[in-house]
Design a binder for these strands. Structure first.
Lengths: 223, 223
DNA sequence: GTTTATAATACTGCATCCATAATTATGCAA
DNA sequence: TTGCATAATTATGGATGCAGTATTATAAAC
């Protein structure tokens, strides 16, 4: 059997590898993408690399300046002010819809994810915490059952990951985030769509506030 | 001055031309994109064409099947069931926010757009009606002042344009659509965010209903 | 020493070419 | 005639090469 299960094209693999490097801030915002060097690094030609960059540009992770090269996108404070309320709206709606559609078993599965979140927090395993956090949010979006909403939220989340402060701020308010998650889960367990929606909504906005605080601390207006 | 104002790359122009052909249903959903033929048609090589296809794929207008070519995306009834409520949520929120932020002059400018909509309807100028309709919605989104929300909505609108039924249904319920627009404008004029939100929300869902009806008429379950 | 003009360098964008995999056509056997 | 195996064709994906433009370096003038 020479059939490949997943016949992914080279440009897709390259796009994924670049995504990881961007998320890991190995390629921080503003960085110029040297096509020749990267192609050489990966042992490929510039053609698939350029195609990968087109994909990343559509995702908003890089910005293509015609005839002037490709740069990792820099998102501004204004962008964050736009994105967080949007995420709050969308994820909030997902939470409400999830309550309406989730079965008893679904809720228990979600509770299990939340439990690993609690564990990770107790044991101080940041990486595991991030992962469980992502999974918790994603699972709720899946329960809501709207694939397009899910897709939009995931795309926005990618853009947020551009900001290093984003993960740092989450790290700094681990306990608060945990409390907010508890409130969301409680509302879902109680079968209260409206409560779940506001809890999720506030959770996201609270994330924005923490980030604003960090920005203020990092770049204080009055030194 | 040899400076070009808009140094757009070839692949961008090609992407735009393909977009128009897809929206015009000259390339209907499901159509196979023959790279060689198209490249020849446009008098270019396959390289920029393939880069354009990557962009369109990220927008959801075409679907790339590795090693099996590129096809114009076919959206299902399920997709529409997902997209319309999402649009209703987003555009509804925009309407509410627009009310809060719009100046007196902004509202009058919006009213002017609505007036061309009325005129176009009276004179039966379908094309002009479509354009004014788009402009009306877009203007509200711009007034809301969230560029990321605007971007998401515009992207979703592109996908909707894949469906031929979408424009047909709008054509069929021109008067109703006009009434709904009047309600939206009235709420904005009155400075009532909540009313504007529900009016816009219902307007979108009403669009979905009309479309469902058309689908039913076109593909009746019991012939 | 600073500024401007010019030359050299380097990179982007596109075209062409080639290898591999998928599809279609052909022939053979049942 | 139908089904399967094999060969021919065709299209996709990637590599390489080249022209044009932006950037940088260098030199000259003020």
């Amino acid at each position: 059997m020479t059939h490949r299960i997943a016949p992914t094209a080279l440009y897709q693999e390259v796009a994924e590898r670049l995504r990881q490097r961007i998320f890991a801030h190995e390629l921080p915002p503003g960085t110029w993408i040297d096509e020749q060097k990267l192609a050489e690094q990966y042992g490929i030609s510039r053609t698939p690399l350029r195609e990968a960059l087109k994909v990343l540009a559509s995702e908003g992770l890089v910005t293509l300046k015609p005839r002037r090269g490709c740069y990792v996108t820099e998102i501004s404070a204004d962008d964050l002010d736009d994105i967080f309320p949007l995420m709050a709206l969308l994820e909030g709606r997902c939470a409400a819809e999830a309550v309406r559609r989730a079965t008893r078993a679904d809720v228990e599965a979600l509770a299990a994810i939340h439990e690993t979140l609690e564990e990770s927090a107790r044991e101080g395993r940041i990486e595991a915490f991030f992962e469980a956090n992502q999974l918790f949010h994603r699972r709720i979006q899946e329960l809501a059952g709207n694939r397009w909403t899910l897709s939009v939220i995931q795309d926005l989340r990618k853009v947020l990951k551009l900001s290093r402060l984003h993960s740092l701020s989450l790290e700094g308010r681990l306990q608060q985030s945990l409390d907010e998650h508890r409130a969301i889960l409680a509302a879902i367990r109680a079968g209260q769509p409206a409560a779940a929606e506001t809890a999720m909504h506030d959770h996201l906005l609270s994330g924005r506030e923490a980030l604003a605080k960090m920005q203020h601390d990092t770049h204080p207006k009055a030194a």
